[in-house]
Design a protein around this nucleic acid. Structure first.
Lengths: 230, 230
DNA sequence: AGTGAGATACTACCATGGCATAAGGCTGCG
DNA sequence: CGCAGCCTTATGCCATGGTAGTATCTCACT
């Protein structure tokens, strides 16, 4: 999880500042530290992060491309509201991409891919039983990233990540419980088995089914908390 | 050397400079005005375009995300070489996205979509018979964009555009002749008919077949002119 | 002649300052 | 009392200067 809004932004001056600011702001937006419709000022962010406005601006431009912020020229920048239509489109695009990649993975899985996925599922099983979502989420992310990158498609993961932000923000609204984490792990295992046994149809179907889990919560949440939706 | 670059590439000071520089550089890279592996200096580009280095830098960052340029921190920026593996991945991702969108379009096509596509195909037929590729390319682009945006998925077009650059650069190497333009139009018409008659399977298949046309030329070209490939 | 170390010249990177523009409040008039 | 127009204030946008880092070139030394 990101540091809180109040304290502890530790930026490493040795690494490119712009990229760090981007990652930090993105995590804070997804983690709802910055709420939808909240104003984000270049000047104020730069002040609070202890950097100049240039890298902040670069980060905001990148976030705007992912529609996590809305930039109004000469007026201001706000955290974008959660627009149901956009979340649905993101879901659709992610499913299209990840289903295709998973199918490809199942066609010719490398030994390294099998090994990495297997290990990740073990770790997920432990984290799920511990019941701590904050430990689980990075493992979930790693699972999906590994399928893309382990199949020789690094760019597909970057595209998926770009659309995923909208969905993650919704997901963050509902803290999954232990049972839910175990269910997710079970679905991951199913995807893995299909890849391992080189069954593309089954792998694609399992991935599509898995991704639809997120969708289920959206409509419930939209009804519960309409304030932060567009 | 004049303060502005080659004629026809001038910038409107009233519009956001950064976005204009991005579009201009992208067109020049795809159009091979800037050759693969050619060095691009922030300072020199700014000088030639008559703007400051800041918007040039912003444009280069965006182009780097599309892997049209490679930025080496503190060293320099070059036009990325045409990497066959990247072109193949771009092709794969584009097909996954556009096949899904086309299927969706065929499920519930709006009247406006039918009308717009129909008109575009007429225009393409005329441009193809005239045999001028430079007139045809914008129409081709519009056809694909219209399917995405006319189906309520504006973001899908942005993703497609992001990966398309790599492929367009390859396509630019082989000037299509009149027969080829007519073939493309025929394929567009087939996609259109499938959408119009609400036949998702046929629409998706037609789009996949259409997109594979580009692939055919890649390997031939890679053999012909290995110099500009990675 | 070959090699290594240092100076140099280049790069992208970040900081800062001035600018134009648009929203919102205030004032004066109807 | 209501509305229109000005003005203040804040914003993002662009220009420019300084900094740190890297490759190359030079020259001394082996």
């Amino acid at each position: 999880m990101p540091p809180t809004a109040a304290a502890g932004y530790e930026l490493d001056p040795k690494l490119p500042i712009g990229a760090q600011v981007y990652g930090l702001l993105k995590r804070m937006i997804i983690g709802l530290v910055f709420k939808p419709n909240e104003a984000l000022s270049e000047k104020e962010l730069a002040l609070r992060l202890g950097v100049s406005r240039t890298p902040v601006r670069e980060a905001l431009i990148r976030l705007a491309e992912e529609t996590l912020v809305d930039v109004f020229p000469q007026r201001g920048t706000i955290v974008s509201p959660i627009r149901v239509a956009e979340v649905m489109e993101a879901q659709f695009l992610r499913e299209a991409l990840e289903a295709a990649v998973t199918r490809r993975a199942a066609e010719q899985p490398s030994a390294a891919l099998i090994r990495d996925l297997s290990r990740l599922i073990d770790d997920q099983h432990h984290a799920a039983n511990a019941g701590r979502p904050e430990d689980y989420m990075p493992l979930d992310e790693a699972f999906h990233r590994t399928i893309s990158e382990g199949t020789g498609m690094p760019r597909s993961w970057r595209l998926i990540q770009g659309v995923k932000g909208q969905m993650d923000r919704v997901r963050f609204l509902s803290l999954p419980n232990k049972a839910h984490l175990l269910l997710l792990t079970e679905q991951h295992a199913e995807i893995f088995k299909a890849i391992e046994t080189q069954d593309p149809d089954r792998a694609e179907a399992a991935m599509r089914h898995h991704l639809k889990e997120v969708l289920k919560t959206i409509h419930e949440l939209a009804a519960e908390m309409p304030a932060i939706f567009a």
